[in-house]
């Protein structure tokens, strides 16, 4: 079974780069487990599976990765939760104070994490988001940014690979 990162990077298995990916199979297996832990966790806390998929799709739009947007949109469609669907688009809001605060924070963590301060965490708390949910939200945003960069990086390596 191919993992998401391997599927989206689409490296020919017989190439030297493909063999390198094979040598790192355990890393891709763990990356897939991390995906499941942030997108469809057993204990989602205050972030429903639908909200997680919507925020992931939003981040992938900010990152300009159409294939990953499609992946997370399919999770969102499967959830059938129309209330959070507007959050899947940058600038989109749902009218729910907590959800909109989470969307703003995922934008910050995707576009300019260097600008994050204590005040951003205070704002989440003031919107009524629990400390555990703040950590869950941060892991979600951090993972999606990791995953997209691995895929983007491997795609580039594939472009210049000789065989």
């Amino acid at each position: 079974m191919s993992t998401l990162i391997e599927t989206f990077a689409a490296v020919p298995a017989t190439s030297r780069l493909g063999q390198a990916l094979q040598a790192r199979a355990e890393i891709f297996r763990l990356s897939e487990a991390a995906h499941d832990a942030v997108i469809v966790p057993r204990d989602p806390g205050g972030l429903s599976h639908a909200l997680r998929a919507a925020l992931a799709a939003r981040m992938c739009r900010l990152l300009g990765d159409a294939a990953l947007v499609g992946h997370y949109e399919s999770y969102l469609a499967h959830s059938n939760d129309l209330d959070v669907a507007t959050l899947a688009h940058p600038g989109g809001s749902s009218g729910d104070v907590r959800h909109d605060a989470m969307a703003r924070h995922t934008d910050l963590l995707t576009l300019a994490p260097r600008k994050a301060t204590r005040g951003d965490i205070t704002a989440l708390k003031e919107a009524g988001i629990s400390e555990a949910d703040i950590v869950r939200l941060s892991e979600l945003a951090a993972f999606v940014n990791y995953q997209q960069r691995v895929i983007a990086g491997v795609r580039l390596l594939k472009q210049v690979a000789t065989s």
Binding site: A23, L157, A161
Partner: peptide
Amino acid sequence: ELEQLDLVLSAAIFGW
């Protein structure tokens, strides 16, 4: 290629 991949992974895991 393996070293290049390791660099992608080490930079990306710090994005996390």
